[in-house]
Structure formats: C-alpha cells, structure tokens
Amino acid sequence: MIVRPAEDPTLPLWRAAVILRVLTLLFALGVIFNHREEYARPGLGFAMAGVMVAWTAAITYRYLRPTGRNLLAFSVVDLVVCCGVMTSSWWVLTSAQLHDPTVPLVPTVWVTGVVAAGAIRGGAVGGSVFGGVVAAFNYGVRGYVDTDLTRDLLLLVGIGFVLGLAATSLRRAAAALAEALRVEAATAERERLARSIHDSVLQVLARVRRRGAELGGEAEELAKLAGAQEVALRALVSSAPAASEDGMADLAARLKVLETDRVSVSAPATPVLVPAVMATELTAAVRETLTNVEKHAGDGAKAWVLLEDLGPEIVVSVRDDGVGIPAGRVAEAEREGRMGVAKSLTGRIADLGGTVSLETAPGEGTEWELRVNR
C-alpha cells in the first residue's frame, strides 16, 4: 500500500475565499459606478477600482497556491492593501457621505475577503485579529461609533474566529488521517512479512524444537534455544508496529519484542508514546536486566516485565524468581570491573534523569524498578 502526501487540506477554503473576493469585487465595482457622480473625487474612485481589480488578480494567483513560507506575510500585505483602499474613502467621498451610513465606503464588502484569508492561514486567532483590524479602520474612516458599525465588528471578528477554527480542524483531521494511513501501510507490510516468516522460518524452528526434544542430549539443548527464538520471533511479528510521530516511539511495542518462553511482558493495550531516545535506552536497560537473569538467576528462572504508564512518569519493573542477589554483590561487581549494572542499567536510566531501585534477597528472586519522567 503506497501512501502519497495529500494536498493542502485547506485548499477548498482558499478557493472559496477567492470566489468570495471576486464576487465582492463585482459588487464594489457596481457601487463605485453607481455613485460616480456623487463622489468628491470620482477619478480617484475609479483609480481605487483599478487597484482592487489588480489586487484581486494577485491574491487569486497566490491563494490558489497556498504553499510556501511567505503566505502569512502575503496575507498581512493583503490586509494593508484592503485597509489602504478603505482609507481612500476620506478623499473619494464627501464629508456628508462619510457620515451617512447608507453610503458605503469605496471597497464596500470587498474587504471582508481578507478576514477569510487571515482565518484560513492564521486560525481562529488570525481570523479574529484580521476582523478586528478591518472593523477598527471602518470606525476610523467613518469617524463615529454607532450600532451598525459595532454590528459589523462583531460579524467580522465572529466570522474570522469560526472560519479559523474550521481551517485548524481541517488541518488536524488531515494530519490524523495521514498518520492512520501510515500505520495501516506499516501494518499491511508487517502482516505480509509475518506470513512469509510463518511459512518458512517459524516452521523450521518449530520442527527443530520438536525433533531436538525427541532426540534428547545435546539436541535437547538446541531444541530449547530454537524454542526461545521461535517465541521471540512470534512476538516480533505479532506485536503492533511502533508508532512514530515527531520523534516519539511506542515503548510497549519495543518491550513486547523481548518476550520469550521464559520472559513475560505486560504492557498497556494502547501505545505508550515516549521520546525515541528514551524508548531505546529503556529497552536496552531492560534487555541488560534480562541478560543478567539468564546468566545469574539459575536454571529455569523466569522473568516478568511490567510497563506502567502513569502519565508524567513511566515505570518499568523487571522481576524474576531466581536465586536472588546477595547483599553487597552489586557494589562488589563494580569494584571488580564488571560494569554491566553500573553502565548498562543504572547509567542509562541516570542519563534519562530517572532512578533505579533494587529489591532482592538470597533465594527470593530479584526485582528492578526503573522510573523516568516523560
């Protein structure tokens, strides 16, 4: 399954914003033509009409290609142009027209399109700010405050806020869909590999395990090794793929791979996402602990790994039913130059800012507890 990157999820909104801009431009041109004989400076009014036509063509070209880092800067320039055209009403309209609420300013509703652009690009905050700026210029050019202008303020800010929320929701939904498609593709590939491994490697290991157990002697030891590898390989191909997003990894999936016939791993059913470096170091520390169980806990000793997700804290416990560790043996091993616990276990967790605690006694097994903050 091939996952291709999707286009900008807000592209339909940009197209709608361009259509709104074109329609409001046609309305503004009609208003200017209708009031041409009443204006104080009709020539300047027609010049502003030309500016609106040219700028609408520019924003149409740019907003239909909503990529690149300078889109926000372009939107701000768009806001400046719209406010400049509004301000030209001071010279185009007569004083009486400026104070007459029935006579629209030069751009009329054309300027509302920039609020849509600010909302799509900047979200709810951007849309609200753009709406507030346009409304402020509306107050300033008119030179007074009344109910109609205040209503325009609420509408501009409200529309910018709602449209901004919609744009942000679209982007989040698109990101979630892309992640779901990535996981689906990874799962499909994993299942394909699992089928291939099951039809070849796992069947061979299972046959070696059964035949070695029948023969006994050295072959029985080989059978045990084959059985352990069979369990580990089954855990590997059956565990969920480690989710990765913004450098995060699923610690539960990584620990599941360590499961064998002598090691049981318990973890939450949902992914336990932690920074990838933390997941790597914790997995290596647990692996070192399990290696010590295999070497020192005694024949037939079993181990249990428990992963707990406590929100701000991750706790991994490794317990075995082996012979235990005599008092002072860990410190003695460090003095003898055996640095397995000091470096591979304690050192790794300390580098993560976590702590390691040990509970053990001769004949009562061993329990390591690894705690790290997320």
Rank of each mutant, 00 (worst) to 15 (best):
A206R: 11
E281P: 04
G227S: 05
L273E: 14
N292S: 15
G298P: 09
A242C: 07
W91G: 05
L307G: 10
L290Y: 03
D250E: 02
E259S: 11
A136R: 07
T56M: 07
M52Q: 05
V92G: 07
E38W: 12
F27V: 15
S238Y: 00
R371P: 00
D152A: 13
D199N: 12
A167V: 10
R190L: 06
G164D: 06
S88E: 04
L225R: 14
V106D: 02
A180K: 10
A240I: 00
S264L: 12
V141I: 14
S169N: 09
A17S: 11
P362V: 06
V277Y: 05
G340S: 11
L153C: 09
R121L: 15
G337K: 02
G127V: 09
E288N: 12
A333G: 07
I197H: 09
L193T: 13
R15G: 12
M248L: 12
V115A: 05
P275V: 01
I325D: 03
L105D: 04
A297Y: 00
G365N: 03
I32V: 14
A186K: 12
S169Q: 13
M48R: 01
R209Y: 02
T355S: 13
A54L: 15
F137Y: 13
I159D: 09
G311F: 01
L25S: 06
V330M: 07
E334D: 12
G122R: 02
R254C: 00
S89N: 05
S357A: 14
I120K: 00
P326W: 00
T355E: 13
V106M: 04
T87N: 06
A252C: 05
A269R: 15
G347M: 00
G123H: 06
A301Q: 02
A327F: 08
E259T: 12
V257G: 08
V141S: 11
A96I: 06
F130Y: 15
A223L: 02
E221K: 13
L282D: 07
P5N: 05
L44Q: 05
A40T: 08
R171S: 12
L310S: 15
L352S: 06
F27K: 07
V145N: 07
L193K: 14
R374S: 03
V265K: 04
P312D: 05
V257I: 15
S89G: 10
V323L: 08
A301N: 04
E313Q: 13
P275N: 01
V141W: 03
D78L: 09
I159Q: 08
A284V: 12
S75K: 01
T355N: 09
A16I: 12
D146G: 13
L13T: 06
R207W: 09
V274S: 06
V372P: 02
T112V: 14
N292Y: 01
A174H: 07
L205H: 05
E334N: 06
V265Q: 03
V272W: 04
T87Q: 10
D351K: 14
G300M: 01
S88F: 09
V356H: 04
A219E: 11
D261H: 09
V316E: 00
V372A: 04
G84E: 02
L163M: 15
P271M: 00
V274M: 03
A188Q: 13
V293A: 08
S238H: 10
V204W: 04
R287W: 10
